[in-house]
Nucleic acid binder design. Sequence first.
DNA 1: CGATAGATTGATACTGCTCAATATGGGTGG
DNA 2: CCACCCATATTGAGCAGTATCAATCTATCG
Lengths: 260, 260
Amino acid sequence: MDKPAVSPWMPVIRKLERRHPLSPVDREALAALPMTVREVKAATYLVREGDQPEHCCILLSGYAHRHKLTKEGSRQIVSIHMAGDMIDLQQVLLSRADHNVQTLTRATVGTVATDCLKNLALARPQIAEAFWRDTLIDASIFREWVLNVGRREAPARIAHLLCEFGTRSEGAGLSDCGRFELPMTQEQLADATGMTPVHVNRTLQYLGAQGLIERKMRSINVVDWQNLKRVAGFQDNYLHEETAASQATGRAPIAQPATG
Amino acid sequence: MDKPAVSPWMPVIRKLERRHPLSPVDREALAALPMTVREVKAATYLVREGDQPEHCCILLSGYAHRHKLTKEGSRQIVSIHMAGDMIDLQQVLLSRADHNVQTLTRATVGTVATDCLKNLALARPQIAEAFWRDTLIDASIFREWVLNVGRREAPARIAHLLCEFGTRSEGAGLSDCGRFELPMTQEQLADATGMTPVHVNRTLQYLGAQGLIERKMRSINVVDWQNLKRVAGFQDNYLHEETAASQATGRAPIAQPATG
DNA sequence: CGATAGATTGATACTGCTCAATATGGGTGG
DNA sequence: CCACCCATATTGAGCAGTATCAATCTATCG
């Protein structure tokens, strides 16, 4: 029983519990799963399209992005991940990866056998529920991205990305009083917003000129959250951060026996 | 025990089982859930953003689309649904809807209390797994839509939408030997592809001129699947229709006891 | 102090948008 | 059965937002 003082599972458990509390038993069952931890460089592939991995990656520190490629080779980043994200939960039930995941920064990555996760989910309904909820929220974020890329103009797209990243960093306890560093090059921003790098550059300058953000080197600082959100048309409901909180405050999504 | 000869749950069960077989017990447990069935007109809202519904809609016949709106009022359709789709599975765990669902055609809609579904999932791991898998595949489709809208040009976007719809219709047993009617106006196509209706019109004409599709009235006929797929850059892996089949043929996503 | 990835700038081209008019077709009431 | 109506589809002309291409500049690192 060589259990380390601080389980590497902590960021994951914290994230799952932000949405819905786990029982101590479930928490321990999760933390007891064997996990291999390793450090990887920036730009390391964690998943490749077509893979049939028997292990599931978990991001313990650092950042990563998930992307797909067209046949012509254009890249579209479809999500950004940070500490605590179970990048690969879908490998538990879908055998073949339909996308790539690559680190944005140096990162600490945990690896768990998909079997272990699946068996745990089968054995513990609350864990299964937590995993399912996690997937549902990911799906909600993808929907918002479809909207972002499909129906917003360049400044709003970039602004929205910044708002989402900022909000999620905050939620994950990774931001320093609203201040955060976006670990993405302009080319990556372009791939995340369906733009070109050149246009990203000009759009960032525009947002700067509007007094919404400040940039020095490769770090972006949000100066005026209020107006950045306005420009982005950002509403955080789709992140579903409220779920746990609303239950705690009795905001009553409590179901009634309303069936016939 | 007044069980109807053909349960309204059939299309749902068929869809879930396309991905992974259910045990007879699970099948019956699902079919035993109380469901209210009703007919609705085209353009009926089944879910509205901000709703906290205690019931979950299931599409038993007809078509529907899921969409989001920007603050300025632009619409982005993020998915299309057909018979057998559990439109609202996310309401089981996420209290507040972050999008709208509206019928495209007249439709038959089943309604089930979210509680019933949740309790069933808690009680029956295989059902929970089936629901989770359904959500994972939906998420995969959303990712593909981000790519479609973000990184493909107009003809490819439309072509891709047609390919996806055709493939899914086929899978759901709704298409008549490759022939199908797409129940969408050009305006709706525009909202699904991040384009304008005018440009959709021109793009459809272009695809027609290329000999890929034929149109009469409001129905589209794919003439040349091969080349339509090529233009679309369509690869069906993201639909994960293979999962059940690959397991049946022993394509071995069978996990080994590879943990330490 | 080069080497190199990334950022920035300018000039130009083009895809797709806007606006506005016209056509079509299917349904409806008289 | 016809005239009308409405939503939808189609067309044209001009414009706008982004893309493309090609330099140049700037950090950062060995």
